[in-house]
């Protein structure tokens, strides 16, 4: 994959907070990463870890009471964090597109598919309806929808879930964006459809050189798809590196826990290991490392917020006691008491 010098997107110390009545929720708290053309970045974490809010921050779609309060989002060198509305509108769907999680909800139920595709083209380019229609048809064929001409005249409820997600992907591809933010686009689909869509998205990205941020909680999806991986926990990136490195040799206890809780054939018959406890409430984070209450390697330094260190080359980790290579067994598998 060709990697040019100017990254498609560079996020630096992004902070997106929600100012609720109960207090300030630091949904994204100091997140940094870089995506280069043609590259796929996997953004992994549990529910509430801030991965979706990161995606919406990039799109400039954070709703009240949320606000980007710090950091930079550099799109090809231009800072678009808190950019004027009209500038963001021109970027959205044109340069940066997004695919949502639930295909049953992303298409407007009362508008025909062609309406929803043509408007996406005409929002950015002054083209005739016929030309936009033709491009929409081509986009549907590109994502593997048969009888595209007929399908354009249908309403969303006449499509299956997988087909709707293909339509959403086709819409995202319409204006040939440089970057696609995909927010768990295959989570709501069954496994066979998920496989097809993953394969097709990967192919499309390779063909068009589109960079992608793939938000998911499913490590197996990231393993096959992404080049780099960011593991998020409580609004922070806790581990960042290339996908093979991180999955083979996780250094943060949280990443380690995530990976060992994936079912596999080798663990047949044994109880699955799990990370004890739940994601802490973002309103009431423990002082220091937010993972310390669930961490098997917790130590005296954990009351101090860990800075980014590089325990192995080309890896960013936020932990005072990273797991060393080969030390994997040292992390005790928590007893399943349930």
């Amino acid at each position: 994959m060709a990697k040019s010098d100017v990254p498609t997107l560079e996020v630096r110390n992004l902070q997106t907070h929600f100012f609720t009545r109960a207090g300030e929720v630091k949904a994204v708290n100091d997140v940094s990463f870089t995506v280069r053309p043609g590259e796929v970045l996997g953004l992994v974490g549990e529910s509430g870890s801030g991965k979706t809010v990161t995606g919406f921050s990039i799109m400039g779609l954070v709703d009240e009471p949320g606000r980007i309060v710090g950091g930079e989002i550099l799109y090809k060198g231009e800072n678009i964090a808190n950019a004027p509305d009209e500038r963001m509108r021109r970027l959205r769907g044109n340069n940066i597109a997004m695919i949502f999680q639930d295909p049953m909800m992303t298409l407007n139920p009362v508008l025909r598919v062609d309406t929803q595709m043509i408007e996406a083209i005409q929002a950015h380019e002054n083209v005739s309806r016929d030309e936009a229609w033709e491009r929409s048809r081509a986009a549907l064929e590109q994502v593997g929808i048969p009888a595209a001409e007929e399908r354009l005249k249908s309403y969303p409820h006449q499509f299956s879930g997988g087909m709707r997600q293909r339509v959403a992907i086709a819409i995202a591809l319409l204006n040939k964006p440089d970057l696609i933010v995909a927010d768990e686009p295959t989570t709501a689909l069954d496994v066979t459809i998920q496989g097809q869509i993953l394969y097709e998205v990967q192919k499309l990205c390779e063909e068009t050189g589109t960079a992608m941020i793939w938000i998911t909680h499913d490590l197996s999806v990231v393993a096959g798809l992404a080049d780099e991986i960011c593991v998020m926990y409580a609004g922070k990136v806790v581990e960042h590196g290339t996908v093979d490195d991180v999955l083979d040799n996780p250094t943060h206890p949280y990443t380690h826990g995530l990976i060992s809780s994936v079912p596999s054939r080798n663990k047949r018959g044994q109880p699955l290991s799990q990370i004890p406890g739940m994601t802490p409430s973002l309103l009431n984070l423990p002082k220091g490392c937010p993972f310390k209450t669930r961490c098997p390697r917790v130590g005296p330094d954990c009351d101090i917020e860990p800075e980014i260190t590089h325990p192995v080359p080309a890896r960013d980790v936020r932990c005072h006691y990273p797991v060393a290579a080969g030390e994997a067994a040292a992390v005790p598998t928590p007893e399943v008491t349930a």
Partner: peptide
Amino acid sequence: HQDYVKFARAKGLTDRR
């Protein structure tokens, strides 16, 4: 608050549309 409205905005449509 429906996803399809957010998706419409993500397409870069004007607020008016």
